[in-house]
């Protein structure tokens, strides 16, 4: 392999490693702060609920849910997962989604609606990705249940 290519690959891979270590070493609180703490997260969840309500594809999954219960639970969960001073005490992810039979496409649609809500709340692309990275591991507890 040519030296230049090798160098570029090395750059990208080392950048990716340092990127990982920053996420781990940085105070877990930083994502919580980037999301605008409790107020910012509440606004984001409200925006997200509006997007869900407008969406024909995924709204049926939420039709029977209590909006206030979902809102409270998701704000609490986002606060916890972004390193804020909360401990998620809501229902277990598997229990919530059992019987809903959410497929891959609908899951991705919800991700897109969350991204749309984050854009509306002026959350930067990089912060969006960091939040998605925290939420992505939950997918196996959500789909095909």
């Amino acid at each position: 392999m040519n030296k230049v290519t090798l160098f570029l690959f090395f750059m990208i891979f080392s950048a990716s490693l340092s990127g990982c270590s920053t996420t781990i070493n940085n105070h877990q609180g930083s994502l919580y702060i980037q999301l605008g703490e409790e107020q910012g997260i509440s606004r984001l969840v409200d925006s997200f609920i509006k997007e869900l309500a407008k969406d024909k594809q995924v709204f049926p999954y939420f039709a029977k849910a209590s909006v206030s219960h979902f809102r409270k639970g998701f704000i609490n969960h986002m606060c916890d997962i972004s390193g804020g001073p909360c401990k998620y005490k809501g229902d277990n992810m598997v229990d919530i989604h059992t019987g809903m039979n959410i497929n891959e496409a609908d899951f991705n649609r919800v991700v897109e609606l969350l991204v749309k809500a984050m854009e509306k709340e002026n959350i930067s692309y990089r912060t969006q990705n960091k939040l998605l990275a925290k939420l992505a591991p939950l997918r196996s507890e959500v789909i095909k249940r």
Partner: peptide, 11 residues
């Protein structure tokens, strides 16, 4: 694809 892996950018 690694979400947010390089200073918040997807890699």
């Amino acid at each position: 694809l690694h979400l947010g892996a390089i200073a918040g950018y997807n890699f």
